[in-house]
Amino acid sequence: MKGSFLGEFEEVVLLATWVLKDQAYANTVRAEVEKHTQRSINLSAIHSALYRMERKGFLDSKLGEASARRGGKAKRHFYVSNKGTEALNEARRIRESFWQLVPAAPFKGENL
């Protein structure tokens, strides 16, 4: 089905959200993704991915509490939905089914 595929960045963001459980909102997701990927990522990219995946139904969200550290503004927590879990599993399945074939296929220039 179209739309159930995850982009590479989406997949990473989704995984980070999953790992963070109750603590997943834009800033923590960004920190998590940066930690694992060793890349510097702009917050707006995280926002864009989160809202897009919420629209697609991979994520659920709810408004959280405000804090002084946030200038008195509330934060939005994200949770991986069932559909999101399925999509992650599907992505993993596809990759693994490929990886199982890889050792059998000869590399270019290698004699078997």
Binding site: A26, H47, K73
Partner: peptide, 16 residues
């Protein structure tokens, strides 16, 4: 409906 959380996220990043 989105401005509050965005502002909060941005502010938090700024403080960090």
């Amino acid at each position: 409906h989105r401005i509050e959380e965005l502002e909060g996220d941005l502010y938090e990043e700024f403080i960090e």
